[in-house]
Design a binder for these strands. Structure first.
Lengths: 138, 138
DNA sequence: CTCGATTTGATACATTATATCATTTCTCAG
DNA sequence: CTGAGAAATGATATAATGTATCAAATCGAG
């Protein structure tokens, strides 16, 4: 993992495993479960779930990967990297995912909802629905 | 389950299992995993996971139970029952949970974020953080 | 170089969730 | 009332997701 924790921000500070996992996610451009990622990176030498989960945790803390809690799945950040001001919309049928950036105004409005006695650390905002294509198909 | 599906809205249309599961959740007043619920209702005769998950699905569709995706856990609705306009804030340390009602203004703002080509079915909004008590303890 | 710390690898297991089929219960047409 | 079909529940088995723990390798400071 080299010197990542001295200045948590340069892509080339990613560990080899993080790079492999990130590339798998970027290739897919669809959300992948940790085990789907594992299958995908197995040829490159990663062979155990904790290795994948560790890489994902690292990438998530850098904002380069986001976890979709509604799907128990992961996606590469559409912007390369971003902080906590994002949301996701996805189609429950075809699993197409759209990353949504929250502008300051929206984000600040959200934060106002949080009770005063909780120090906010992480916001999860996910919209599930059916995309036009899947509605048409139905 | 009696006549529930003819007019999805009266509490006394709940199945016996739904009543048991709902009471377990209301007793706890903290989020419970499906398996914690199972342990809790086992004395009353429920003994298999699918039974609990089925009851939870029914209760959730009635808005009487909400699933916290961030915790893979369930809570009884603080209002008895409510539609999709709610959010949760919880402390990652002590797991205390607060249900937040979204007023129309907030909700409509959120909905505007959803891409036009997705027909929204479900919104997940969850805030994770540390409550004052747990911060003090740290 | 070598000690200690950090990262990675590996094993094993815990937790969460669901597919499937068998059984029971309910409904209602006759 | 009754029996056939539908709906709900029970039970079994297993799939999918996630983590604790320790061992081995690697790295960096002294």
């Amino acid at each position: 993992m080299a010197t990542k924790h001295q200045h948590d921000h340069a892509e080339d500070d990613l560990s080899a495993n993080e790079v492999r996992v990130l590339e798998a996610l970027r290739d897919s451009k669809e959300p992948m479960s940790a085990y789907a990622i594992l299958d995908r990176v197995r040829p490159s030498g990663i062979s155990h779930p904790p290795t994948v989960y560790r890489a994902l945790a690292g990438l998530e803390s850098l904002g380069m990967v986001h976890r979709l809690k509604s799907l128990s799945a992961f996606v590469a950040c559409g912007h390369g990297r971003c902080g906590g001001r994002f949301a996701f919309a996805f189609c429950r049928q075809c699993q197409r995912v759209e990353e949504i950036s929250l502008d300051d105004e929206h984000y600040d409005d959200l934060v106002k909802l949080v009770p005063k006695d909780i120090h906010l650390e992480q916001t999860t905002l996910e919209f599930a629905g059916l995309c036009s294509a899947c509605q048409a198909a139905a």
